[in-house]
């Protein structure tokens, strides 16, 4: 059974690692307008991460704040899904990751906003608005790349197929009673949202096959250690310093 603190860590880690990856686009985006858009995505995700991690730390009651949780945990202590760790790849891979994550987060947050636990509901209500825009943004780009040039169609198709196996983990039975929901029940509406974008993008939904798993219990991809090493390097080099 997942406890609420661990669940909050999972939500926070999903958002934190997604923010970390999205922010890697800074100064590398395909167009100046997209620089601004991608930075907004990263900032929304980072804001959600901070809210969830702060709350997780308080519930845990061991004096760990958002920074202690972000910078001083080791790889196996992170509870994020593997989807968010995947390298950015080209813009199509980033769009696919964003679409799949945002569609899930939007459904999840919308339900959590009605949770009996008021603080969780409050964070989720704010985050639901943000993720609704992320779904809109990622759908828009899925369609433009999928139904653009032959090259962009191929790249968008490849991206969807590459990322698809990592989406199953989002719906694993991993939620505390306070959440008041069954993650598996989100997959139907998720397929609808994602399917709409893929359809308009002239893409087909990949077959379900091998499914990544393990992130929620601390097993991650080979890329994750590098991401953490980079993210935590300055903080860990100055133990106890304030920033």
């Amino acid at each position: 059974m997942t406890g609420l603190p661990e669940y909050l860590l999972g939500l926070g880690d999903d958002a934190l690692v997604a923010a970390q990856r999205t922010a890697e686009w800074c100064a590398k985006a395909p167009q100046l307008e997209e620089e601004v858009a991608l930075a907004n995505l990263a900032l929304d995700q980072l804001g959600q991460a901070r809210a969830f991690l702060t709350y997780a730390g308080e519930l845990e009651g061991e004096g760990r704040d958002e920074d202690a949780l972000a910078f001083l945990r080791d790889e196996h202590e992170f509870r994020n899904v593997q989807l968010v760790e995947l390298p950015n790849g080209d813009f199509a891979v980033t769009v696919a990751k964003t679409l799949f994550l945002a569609a899930y987060q939007n459904l999840l947050y919308t339900r959590l906003a009605r949770a009996a636990e008021p603080r969780l509901a409050g964070i989720a209500a704010k985050a639901a608005k943000e993720s609704a825009f992320h779904v809109s943004y990622a759908s828009l780009w899925t369609v433009r790349l999928g139904d653009g040039t032959p090259l962009s169609h191929r790249r968008m198709r490849d991206a969807v197929e590459e990322v698809w196996p990592y989406t199953h983990e989002l719906f694993e039975p991993w939620a505390p009673p306070e959440a008041g929901l069954d993650p598996a029940a989100l997959r139907g509406p998720w397929l609808e949202v994602v399917g709409r974008a893929l359809g308009e993008a002239t893409l087909t939904r990949p077959q379900d096959g091998w499914a990544a798993t393990g992130g929620r219990s601390g097993r991650h991809t080979e890329w994750f250690g590098l991401l953490l090493a980079d993210m935590q390097s300055v903080h860990r080099a100055h133990v106890g310093a304030r920033w």
Binding site: A29, P30, Q31, E34, T149, S152
Partner: peptide, 9 residues
């Protein structure tokens, strides 16, 4: 590297 994205859109 962004050229294909701009062109697709």
């Amino acid at each position: 590297e962004g050229a294909w994205v701009r062109e697709a859109a």
